[in-house]
Design a protein around this nucleic acid. Structure first.
Length: 487
RNA sequence: GGCGGCAUCGCCAAGUGGACUAAGGCCACGGUUUGCAAAACCGUUACCCUGGGUUCGAAUCCCAGUGCCGCCUCCA
């Protein structure tokens, strides 16, 4: 078994081998923090989170860097329009630094809720201005860039490999391009490394070319280089960034360093909402904070993972509801499993159980190895869950050790790798001196007395009333369990 | 106009040359279990967009067509 990734650069699935054995340097384009994160962010960062988790599961020492863009991302394209941060800050009447703080916090809040592990480093563009200036100077020195009227542009014609990632050719770019003619540029497809700050532009830094601010593409090159070296093992991002963003990153970095920038380019596909592209201009944005009011964040995470990261994901209530029920099924198994662990006595080890566990684990890992096929991995989980359910319902006494081994495997695959298992199940608060639990005990005992007396009407009344307030009862042969449900 | 992707059961979604008489989830319908439920389990439902071709063999490769989508302003 070997982990394979689809590499956008070569357009092929390739066996993954890091530059340095046992270590993986990974960079993922982070958010521009000028608004609350939306479900598109969720798809992207959940996808890469699972990649990081899986690499670590495979014992790679991963350094995961994800930038925070807090300057330089312009509204029209990378070199025209207003700075998004600045524009929004003016609208909300706050300092740009304040705005950035608000939305960075919001971003991490939502990513935490989705159970994404924090990146090892979350560098900010504004904290790396000197590094960016340094690259610009280097590029000018080497003849790849030129200063023009206080701005600096990358001379695309000097970098013959420009277009190798996106498959775009220079001539084509210029032909149909919607790029406005900028007299400062030698060539329409040249892109800004450094922009001159007009009077009144408050986000500005001193540079050899006068006061200005960095171009958007530059930060990723500067920060990845600083924290991960000249050649990255993995660079990830949304596929809408292939051109121009990633193409420009390659040009800058490789022109400056003369070494390959990235070994594996990984791009995730986009989110649509009810079949329609989600876009700023279309105004059909779904923020995560909104989505979380209707769905558990882990449901959204699970939903994202039921589709391959390179496939588009359509966000609709029907699909989310279906995912929610599916996840509930998985949770039921684990909740029941843990319940039996608590009450387990000396039982036996069912024959063939370890072979089965091994089989499902293998199926799961093989799916993950094939370019992180999470839908396949999840299918293996459902198969496992079915077998476990059968076992748990069989009525036979199973040894505690065996049950714990099953639980451990579930935790390993669904918990550690996919991150879809909550730390504690809200519905069960076992081991806690929980008032509700005690009250429920009294109600259940009372109701079971009624059931013994065949008082069905009254016992059904109690159960129905509890269902109405969001508590489900589950009558088993020798006991009754309860859990919280969604109303 | 240029570049790229997709079309698999009612819905979602894996599979990308041979164990596919096509995984898994949701929904529906039968059944087992239950005092009745719930949960769980068993069962039922696909000529893989169309037409050619390559091959001993194709959902999987090639060509053509049809439909949908993304990128080439902004966006993860």
């Amino acid at each position: 078994m070997a982990l394979k990734f689809y590499n956008s650069l070569t357009k092929k699935k390739e066996v993954f081998t890091p530059l340095n054995e046992g270590r993986v340097n990974m960079y993922v384009c982070g958010p521009t923090v000028y608004d609350h994160p939306h479900i598109g962010h969720a798809k992207s960062y959940v996808s890469f989170d699972v990649i990081v988790r899986y690499l670590r599961y495979l014992d790679y020492k991963v350094r995961y860097v994800q930038n925070i863009t807090d300057v330089g991302h312009l509204t029209d394209n990378a070199d025209a329009g207003e700075d998004k941060i600045l524009k929004r800050a003016q609208r909300e009447r706050v300092e740009p630094a304040e705005l950035v703080e608000i939305y960075t916090k919001s971003y991490f809040e939502d990513m935490d809720a989705l159970n994404n592990l924090r990146p090892d480093i979350s560098p900010r563009a504004t904290a790396h201005i000197p590094e960016q200036i340094e690259i610009v100077e280097k590029l000018i020195e080497k003849g790849f860039a030129y200063a023009s009227n206080g701005s600096v542009y990358f001379d695309v014609q000097k970098f013959t490999e420009y277009g190798k990632l996106s498959g775009r050719k220079q001539e084509e770019l210029e032909a149909g391009a919607r790029i406005e003619i900028n007299p400062e540029k030698r060539n329409p497809s040249d892109f800004a490394l450094w922009k001159k700050a007009e009077p009144g532009h408050i986000m500005r830094w001193k540079s050899p070319w006068g006061e200005g601010f960095p171009g958007w593409h530059l930060e990723c090159s500067a920060m990845s280089m600083k924290y991960l070296g000249q050649t990255l093992d993995i660079h990830g991002g949304g596929l809408e960034n292939i051109f121009p963003h990633h193409e420009c990153e390659i040009a800058q970095s490789e022109a400056a360093n003369k070494s390959p920038f990235v070994r594996y380019w990984i791009h995730n596909n986009m989110v649509t909402v009810n079949g329609q592209k989600m876009g700023k201009s279309l105004g059909n944005f779904v923020t995560l904070k909104d989505a979380f009011t209707k769905y558990n964040p882990l449901t959204i995470r699970f939903f994202i993972l039921t589709t391959h990261y390179r496939s588009p994901l359509d966000f609709s209530n029907e699909a989310l509801d279906a995912a929610d029920k599916g996840l509930e099924r998985l949770y039921n198994t684990i909740v029941n499993l843990r319940e039996q662990i608590d009450s387990a006595k000396d039982g036996s080890t069912p024959s063939g159980i370890y072979e089965k566990l091994e089989h499902y684990k293998k199926t799961f890992l093989e799916a993950m190895d094939e370019d992180i096929n999470t839908p396949g991995a999840i299918a293996a989980l459902f198969d496992l869950s079915k077998d476990v359910n059968t076992l748990l319902n069989s009525g036979q006494e199973i040894s505690k050790m065996c049950l714990e081994d099953i639980d451990r495997l579930c935790q390993e695959l669904a918990g550690n790798i996919l991150g879809i298992i909550p730390k504690t199940f809200e519905s069960k608060k076992k081991g806690e001196a929980d008032v509700l639990d005690n009250v429920m005990r009294v109600i259940i005992d009372t109701r079971n007395e009624l059931r013994k007396a065949k008082q069905w009407q009254l016992s059904d009344f109690i159960r129905n009333k509890l269902t109405e307030i969001g508590i489900a009862l589950d009558d088993k042969p020798d006991s009754t369990a309860w859990k919280r449900i969604k109303k």
